[in-house]
Design a protein around this nucleic acid. Structure first.
Length: 779
DNA sequence: TGATTGTTTGCTCCA
DNA sequence: CAAACAATCA
């Protein structure tokens, strides 16, 4: 088996150089995924290394799944008893802490493996409580998010609240230190870890617990890290700890594509690699296989304006290709229509090609969506408001977390009065005050306040009901399935009744979302997941994981587009203040990052690249249109590469199809509302792409213990359990549902286990069901 | 005291 | 165009 054939000289070198530290500087489109997958296959076959001794870390779950599948495809004919561990940093750390985290309790008192994971909304809840506790006001002090980002930064550079106190030079610094202290205390009393902690605590565990570290060092002999330019300090330390004994660490990255410094990514990790690993080898992949000469030249010309870079020159054997299209729209609406119109025309000629519309901020998607809908085009949107961020989902998940761990204060505050049960603001404030004064968590405070009985009778009884409810839920949680637990929550908390009484289209959607949550829970359980697996997965799904490469049109932010490629790319909103973003314009470093972001966006394109901006744009939903200035990045593209596609000084000056009367008429009749990728239809997909589980180090070393022991292609397991043979429901068929009674099938999507059918029940209206779990009978 | 209704306010990017 | 907040109602 030869995994070196078909590669260029540099790629070949990168694949075959397996021992010792290796830095691969891989330019955009230089075949880096190919190199990583071939390298893994090569190590396994040529060096006879068991796959489980290889760890590859990627940036998203999606990329991890893809990599696993590609390696499996390469090794199709090789009998293997395990598969390589491919994972993101965060999911790796969560699994490490959940399974082998016990020793951490010695170093970090209070830690248990049942910790909750707090996302940024939860963090916001904590910081608000900390403000309240310290009597701080967001308007007078600083914005919650600003405080959070300062705290996160401190954590990542290993500064404690005490360190901040010591170097504080004014009241504001001191207040921040106090906030930080409060915030950390709250995390610990709630037994919760934020996203920073997941990495930090994993590092702490490996650093201070020799047994765990040595076990991992014995297990792994090769570590590979993708998107290395976007790793932060803890990820760097994690890499060092995991490759401590063998030093076979291979990192792949491109300093020109470092776009996450605001999240703690430290570009020095890649710039200093050669210094950190003195006997390392560096290989540059500079041949681009993706884009035309023109696109590459344009992108290169932009990023050349950056000073902080190693400098590398991408080249290609591809043809010049088309010039870069530039369009100056009158306003955002016109820009969106231009994009939709150009796509429409392009699709006629190249029906199979996929298009990406990229933007800097999520809010820009709205108008583009609207334009595409007017053209009746299907589109997918990645990011924005995802399933797990919806209020109703977060509410139920909060109940689940609370049932699993009643010390989870953020979840408690979230649902203590949702649905309204008579526990109002003042009562909650009393609970918080009590907890603070006695140094206990909110749950204990609730119990003690009930015992003390110094609330009004009304509040007292409301609180008792709530306490009993949660106690009942934790009891149910220990004895029934996750799906049943969710159903129980919906019934017993009155959540379902609350939504049913509303009877608005929104409440209908919410109910459907909750049904989908139950379906996802059932599917998750069927794969053998525990409740905690389910909650972890919900916490760690990334927006980018929802990207569907089959989608003809995809809308997403530039950040989400990292690592992807498309025949046609639109870069929209190229205006000062928007891109580069106003908050990144006052520092040189931030501006350079915006420029790298621009470079990332441009290099996603294979054949056609369009840059658009709007001369007028309104900043808020309602406000006035404001005049805008074209982005500096536009003028950094050499003029000879640009083709001007029009400048409109008046709305509607350019003759778009959508401006024609007949198209408007038909658009009005067209009720198609696009396809939102974060819609409920895709939730089961999120779950089916679950990463492979890590075996605990505690498991006895019986049969070759693959650390990631599932078959390499999770979607097509070799030993697929034969599904119960059931006639698929067809459109028009009358079926019977255990709860909704009889109804008519109106639509059917997908097939096999994923088949979803929409059924019209006379009494309950349209319901979308996963056929496999709906328990339908023909009637 | 808690629930509901009106009013104001203010956009990064994300695991 | 939302969520967050203040003001009002029950």
């Amino acid at each position: 088996m030869d995994f070196i054939k078909g590669l260029n000289a540099q790629q070949r070198e990168a694949v075959s150089h397996t021992e010792g530290p290796l830095l691969i500087l891989a330019g955009a489109g230089s075949g880096k995924t190919r190199v990583i997958t071939h390298r893994i296959a090569h190590i396994i076959t040529a060096r006879h290394i068991p796959p489980s001794a290889i760890l590859a870390v990627t940036f998203t779950n999606k990329a991890a799944n893809e990599m696993r599948e590609r390696v499996a495809a390469l090794l199709e004919d090789v009998p293997l008893e395990s598969s390589p561990a491919v994972s993101t940093f965060h999911s790796f750390c969560v699994r490490l802490l959940r399974r082998d985290g016990d020793p951490l309790a010695r170093i970090r008192p209070g830690f248990t493996r049942r910790f909750s994971i707090y996302d940024d909304e939860d963090q916001l809840g904590l910081i608000k409580a900390a403000y309240r506790g310290l009597g701080l006001d967001e308007k007078e002090f600083m914005q919650y998010r600003a405080a959070l980002s300062r705290i996160s930064h401190a954590k990542n550079v290993k500064e404690t609240p005490q360190d901040l106190y010591k170097k504080a030079v004014n009241k504001e610094n001191e207040a921040l230190a106090a906030l930080y202290e409060e915030y950390e205390k709250a995390l610990r009393t709630a037994n919760a870890l934020d996203f920073d902690d997941l990495l930090l605590e994993a590092v702490r565990l490996l650093r201070h617990d020799e047994a765990t570290r040595e076990a991992w060092n014995r297990r792994l002999s090769y570590v590979m890290i993708d998107e290395y330019q976007d790793t932060n300090r803890s990820q760097y330390e994690l890499m060092r700890l995991l490759s401590d004994s063998h030093k076979n660490v291979c990192v792949v990255g491109d300093e020109d594509q470092s776009i996450y410094s605001w999240r703690g990514a430290d570009i020095r990790n890649i710039l200093d690699f050669e210094r950190d690993f003195p006997n390392s080898k560096t290989i540059r992949l500079e041949q681009n296989y993706r884009s035309t000469k023109n696109i590459l030249a344009a992108a290169g010309a932009v990023v050349e304006n950056n000073k902080a870079r190693k400098g590398k020159k991408l080249w290609t054997e591809a043809a010049d290709g088309d010039t870069i299209g530039l369009y100056a729209a009158y306003d955002a609406e016109n820009e969106a229509l231009f994009i939709a119109d150009t796509i429409e025309k392009y699709m006629v000629v190249n029906p199979g090609d996929h298009v990406a519309v990229l933007y800097r901020t999520n809010s820009q998607s709205r108008q583009i969506e609207e334009a595409l809908r007017r053209y009746g085009r299907k589109y997918n949107i990645v990011g924005g408001f995802s399933f797990y961020q919806r209020a109703e989902i977060k509410d139920i998940v909060a109940y689940l977390k609370l049932a699993a761990s009643n010390v989870d204060s953020v979840s408690l505050l979230r649902v203590i009065n949702t649905p309204a049960r008579g526990i109002g603001r003042t009562t909650v404030e009393q609970i918080e005050k009590y907890a603070r004064e006695h140094g206990i968590n909110l749950w204990d405070a609730v119990e003690r306040i009930i015992d003390d009985q110094h609330l009004s009778t009304r509040s007292q009884s409301a609180l008792v009901l709530f306490r009993n409810l949660i106690q009942e839920l934790s009891l149910v949680a220990s004895s029934s399935s996750l799906a049943d637990l969710i159903r129980h929550i919906l019934d017993r908390t009155g959540y379902r009744r609350m939504l049913q009484q509303e009877k608005t289209p929104e409440s209908e959607t919410r109910l459907e979302n909750l049904e989908e949550l139950i379906n996802a829970a059932a599917e998750s359980a069927e794969r053998g997941d525990t409740i905690s697996d389910f909650l972890d997965h919900a916490a760690l799904v990334a927006d980018a994981d929802a990207y569907d490469e089959q989608a003809p049109i995809t809308l997403m932010t530039l950040h989400n587009a990292k690592g992807l490629e498309f025949p046609v790319v639109f870069l929209s909103g190229m205006e000062l203040g928007l891109f580069p973003h106003s908050r990144s314009m006052d520092s040189e470093a931030a501006l350079e990052e915006e420029r790298r972001l621009c470079y990332v966006g441009m290099t996603r394109a294979r054949k056609r690249l369009f840059l658009t901006w709007a001369r007028f744009r309104r900043r808020f939903g309602g406000g006035e249109q404001e005049r805008s200035t074209p982005s500096w990045f536009l003028s950094e593209v050499p003029a000879h590469l640009i083709q001007n596609l029009g400048v409109t000084d008046e709305p509607g000056e350019v003759n778009l199809i959508a401006e024609r009367h007949d198209v408007r008429q038909s658009a009005r009749r067209n009720t198609y509302t696009g396809k939102t990728y974060n819609s409920i239809e895709n939730i089961s997909q999120f779950f089916s792409e679950k990463g492979l589980p890590v075996n605990s180090l505690k498991t006895p070393p019986q049969v070759p213990p693959a650390p990631f022991s599932r078959p390499a292609a999770p979607n097509k397991p070799l030993t697929q359990a034969a599904p119960p043979v059931r006639k698929p429901a067809r459109t028009g068929m009358t079926v019977e549902h255990p709860k909704y009674g009889t109804g008519t099938v109106v639509r059917r999507e997908g097939d096999g286990d994923d088949a979803k059918i929409t059924v019209n029940f006379p009494r309950f209206g349209l319901k979308k069901l996963v056929e496999k779990y709906a328990g339908l009978k023909r009637s």
